[in-house]
Simulated assay, not measured.
Amino acid sequence: MPATDTSTQVYKELRKMTEKMAKEYGLNLEIPPKSFKEMKGEFLEIEPKKILVRFPYDARFATPIGVFQGGMLCTALDNTYGPLSYITAKKPCVTTDLSTQFFRSFGPKDEYIEIEAKVIAKSPVMLTMQAEVRNPKKKLIATSTTSMLILQDSMLKRMTSRQEED
């Protein structure tokens, strides 16, 4: 499926959830979040329990020696896990743990990275996912695992009252 079709499909799913959260809980979700837009993420593939996202190299997120900062790579991972968690759980989720192992740097010559994330396990309250980060030559840059809490009705209702206070 071409990336534009994939992006349309992902945004359609996320928009449905946004509308549902607004209707059922009065929550105003910003999807995709500002960080995804700032990093210029692009959805390439979506399947049940799997997503592929591309992020271009951006010197604004580089260390003094010109390689992508590890923390920003973790942000790219979180920006990949987030849409997959929403689509899988059909509710907002929050990261409770994110572990990343780095194997090689991501620099300007790479141009971009692709992150493939998969759902490993899902319970009524938790999601466990793993991801691989690869450069255009398919060389492994990093691996990651995450646990996410699926927000339950009582949590979502409390969030509504917090949004009203702000």
Rank of each mutant, 00 (worst) to 15 (best):
M1N: 09
M1Y: 11
T4F: 11
S7A: 14
Q9L: 13
L14R: 10
L14W: 05
R15K: 15
M17F: 11
M17V: 12
E19Q: 14
E19L: 14
M21W: 00
A22S: 15
K23D: 14
E24T: 10
Y25K: 04
G26V: 12
N28P: 02
N28A: 09
E30G: 08
E30P: 00
E30H: 11
E30V: 14
P32R: 03
M39L: 07
M39Q: 06
K40D: 10
E42P: 02
F43M: 07
L44N: 05
E45R: 10
P48Y: 08
K49N: 13
K50M: 08
K50T: 09
K50Q: 11
R54S: 15
P56A: 13
Y57G: 05
A59S: 11
R60K: 15
T63S: 05
G70V: 01
M72F: 08
L77N: 00
D78L: 02
Y81A: 02
Y81M: 01
G82P: 00
G82M: 03
P83E: 01
S85F: 00
S85I: 00
I87P: 00
I87Q: 01
T88P: 03
T88D: 08
A89R: 01
K90D: 14
K90N: 13
P92T: 09
C93K: 02
C93L: 07
C93G: 03
V94T: 10
D97T: 06
S99E: 10
F102H: 07
F103H: 15
F106L: 13
G107E: 05
G107R: 01
P108Y: 08
K109Q: 15
Y112I: 11
I113Q: 01
E114D: 11
E114Y: 11
E114A: 12
I115V: 07
I115A: 03
I115H: 01
E116D: 06
A117K: 00
K118Y: 13
V119M: 03
K122P: 01
S123H: 07
S123P: 04
P124G: 12
V125S: 15
V125M: 14
M126S: 08
T128C: 07
M129F: 05
E132A: 08
R134D: 02
K139R: 13
L140F: 04
L140G: 11
L140V: 12
I141D: 04
S144L: 02
S144T: 04
S147D: 09
L149E: 06
I150K: 03
I150Q: 04
M155K: 12
L156Y: 06
K157A: 02
T160L: 09
R162M: 13
Q163R: 12
E164P: 03
E164G: 09
E165A: 15
E165C: 10
